[in-house]
Write a protein that binds this DNA or RNA. Structure first.
Lengths: 230, 230
DNA sequence: GTCTATAGACGGATAGAC
DNA sequence: GTCTATCCGTCTATAGAC
């Protein structure tokens, strides 16, 4: 593996990342060649390998630079909610808002490329590529742990597995919300209203409804002590 | 464009389709080469071009053969619910069950390859590839029209755009439900219980909760009394 | 750090024998 | 319908001049 040079030539480097982000979003990783990236970024073909080493390393860096920021904001939002709760468990709606609200905020940021990135991220959750799955899991591990812990404390009577599934479902809904009409064209031309603020309200309403849905009537396997009073 | 030969050599043809389906699911379209497909199917490399013409045509056929059946079942389920309603609008929960219930049924069919296909389909909803989006939209057009019409009749007081968005969110939740732990490994090893029957109850509970969530407080054009979507 | 040029592998597709 | 052999394009990555 070749050494990367993070500090030099920031301009070229950023141009490559921006171009790659947009092209990955539009065409996927495999269908996006280095040549497409370098010609879009107006840099030389060899510059990518010079700055990032390999295409995989470039992909990784495209995600790392945004996810670092996004997850920091998510954790900060959760910490704020916890402070406001003053020792009591945070309300589930606050937890959901902390996580998905920051997602949608970034998705609404069309000026600094957040919107492009979030659409890329949304589809990457279901990315088959082994190495992409691996580093996404690493980038998310702390956030998942913190948010799941908060939800367990907020919903002590709900089996943890149910909470995990519902969070998973919420991620799916958010993915599609951000992808909007770009991804699935089944409803092409039918979404007249794409105002991000309204999307936020629409999604939150749906997510909280789903989270509060009556628990399914499973023949519970008599687990011991799901009640962690924190 | 080369002519396809649907009736001849069904065995080879089916083996190719099965192999392609599995490999597309595991690695994606671009990362799956013709050579991977033919060696997995134990057929000659040239057989793919003989039977399907091009790789894109093969991809199309992988989807067509399953979607035809799936959408037929969805429409039949909706028709049954409409007959049972006897002229009255079908309950939203019945409509949702008709659509997503058939999805999960196919996802639970591990014997005839339905499970593999549904995981492939789930991630393909967010597929960037232009031509894939296009034929998916075509395959779905009738189903979308029928189900949206049923939901509009069932929820006459809910703005149609809200219904569209919520259905879109539901598709996202279903996608992730089917992808399960395979897609996103954020909760790796934490889903102990993958029983399809329980997944069905879990997902339905979430979807209906989301559908019934209070309508978001958009600066609405003063419609009368939309407290609840269900 | 940036460039040209190219190595070296693999991709989809086809020609033509059987 | 099935096979071998091959064309020709594109890909990632690198060597080496500047």
């Amino acid at each position: 593996m070749r050494e990367t040079h993070h500090r030099q030539a920031p301009e070229t480097r950023e141009r490559i990342l921006d171009a790659a982000e947009g092209l990955f979003m539009a065409h996927g990783f495999e269908a996006t060649s280095m040549r497409m990236i370098t010609s879009t970024a107006h840099v030389n073909l060899a510059a990518v390998n010079y700055h990032f080493g390999t295409k995989d390393a470039l992909i990784h860096e495209v995600f790392r630079r945004r996810l670092h920021d996004l997850n920091r904001r998510r954790l900060a939002a959760l910490s704020n909610a916890e402070l406001a709760a003053n020792g009591a468990p945070v309300k589930p709606s606050r937890i959901v808002e902390a996580f998905f609200g920051e997602s949608l905020k970034m998705a609404a940021d069309t000026e600094h490329g957040g919107a492009v990135f979030m659409r890329l991220l949304g589809r990457t959750y279901t990315e088959p590529n082994e190495f992409v799955r691996k580093f996404l899991a690493e980038e998310y591990s702390e956030v998942v742990e913190r948010f799941m812990g908060a939800l367990y404390r907020a919903l002590p009577d709900v089996p943890r597995e149910e909470i995990l599934w519902r969070f998973h479902f919420m991620m799916g809904a958010m993915s599609f919300a951000i992808a909007g009409t770009d991804a699935l064209q089944l409803f092409a031309g039918e979404f007249d209203d794409k105002d991000p603020a309204k999307l936020m309200e629409r999604l939150m309403s749906f997510l909280l409804g789903g989270l509060r849905g009556p628990l399914p009537n499973l023949q519970a396997p008599a687990r011991d002590d799901q009640r962690d009073a924190a």
